[in-house]
Amino acid sequence: MEWLLAIRFDFDTVGDFLFDPIILRAMRQTLYIALLAMVLGVGLGVVLAVMRDSRNPIVSAPAGVYVWFWRATPVILQLLMVYFGLRQLIDEDIFRDNWTRFRAAVVTFGLNEAAYMAEIVRGGIQSVEAGQMDAAKSLGMTNMQALRRIILPQAFRVMIPPTGNEFIAMLKNTSVAFAIGVVELLNAARIQAAANFRPMELYTVAAFWYLVLVSIFSLGQAELERVMAVSERERPETLLSRAMAIVGTRRGV
């Protein structure tokens, strides 16, 4: 057991770098890439899901091919193609100046996420009873009106848990963006680790921030599920709602 004494984990280094401006900036990069990509992914995912369920093959086939391509190739390859590949193909200064690593990462993760979201949205739409569409149509709504006002609001509730999973997975996957030189959380930690010869401490810092980010979003997801519940009766309790209730009773509300 003597080897245990040889372990030198420097807690001071962890403390020094936990709120280091470079690390915090990288953490924000990670967060921004994930959030923007998710917005793009959900938006495009809804469009793709609706396209795929179209009876017209000219509409549904491209959506099928899209999902197939983005799901069947590694995200690291997609990053390389979207950043380096496009810079090679589009040899214009105005494009090269604007096509930053950060933007390429947002677009790649967004397009990639859309392929997975398309399947989740499709599952959500299919989970809504057929009678809902009948009722909407019998009232004179077009397919689009029925989809937007009746079907999707109900589908979203079913979509929240798998979408939350997707978001958490993607948040962590943004670390792959180091392949095109984005200084996101893990990459920043790696660079600092090399410069300071303190890999374990710096990886711990990175792990800490990933844990914090994912925990915040897990709480947010539970809260969203609560708000989207159909009625009070089905409304689940969440950590936050319980905490609020306790605070409320203490205040005598």
Partner: peptide
């Protein structure tokens, strides 16, 4: 149209 299972928007 009125349906057997109501089909109200929940």
């Amino acid at each position: 149209m009125v349906f057997q299972r109501f089909n109200l928007f929940p």
